[in-house]
């Protein structure tokens, strides 16, 4: 797991990575989370322009024997969704960092400072997944 958390990203405790890119925050799923799922078969993405509050379910993921939801750790408006992943969910399995899920225009950049950095995320997920 040691190399599973790129240094330039921020992380939530719900398997989400985030990256500030100009005026938006890009959001995806972390590799240790993806690795627990054999193959994603469906990804339900939110509508563009949807307003998200912290903790809102914004994405549903489904595999043959599993389904789960992703909650947003930031407040903002959905400005883009990755239709490549919608059309081919197995892209998430192939590279969860290259294949982002949504982009959010956030209202308060300080929310990002409350998220974990790569080292913190590594320790957190090592403990979580080894428990």
């Amino acid at each position: 797991m040691e190399n599973d958390f790129p240094k330039d990203l921020k992380y939530s405790k719900d398997y989400v990575w985030l990256k500030k890119e100009n005026d938006v925050v890009v959001l995806g799923v972390v590799k240790p989370g993806v690795e627990q799922v054999e193959e994603f078969v469906f990804v339900m993405l939110p509508e563009k322009e949807k307003q998200l509050q912290k903790g809102d379910v914004c994405i549903s993921l489904e595999a043959v024997k599993w389904s789960g939801e992703i909650t947003t750790p930031v407040i903002g408006k959905v400005v883009d969704v990755n239709m490549d992943v919608f059309n081919n969910p197995s892209l998430l399995n192939k590279d969860p960092y290259k294949n982002w899920l949504i982009k959010i225009a956030i209202t308060d950049e300080k929310e990002l400072t409350q998220l974990m950095n790569a080292n913190e995320a590594l320790l957190y997920y090592q403990e979580k997944l080894n428990a």
Binding site: V41, F42, L45, E47, E62, V64, F86
Partner: peptide
């Protein structure tokens, strides 16, 4: 399985 997933995609794209 493929049909179920396709149905979900159809619903999503309709909405």
């Amino acid at each position: 399985v493929a049909s179920i997933v396709a149905e979900k995609k159809v619903t999503f794209l309709k909405n």
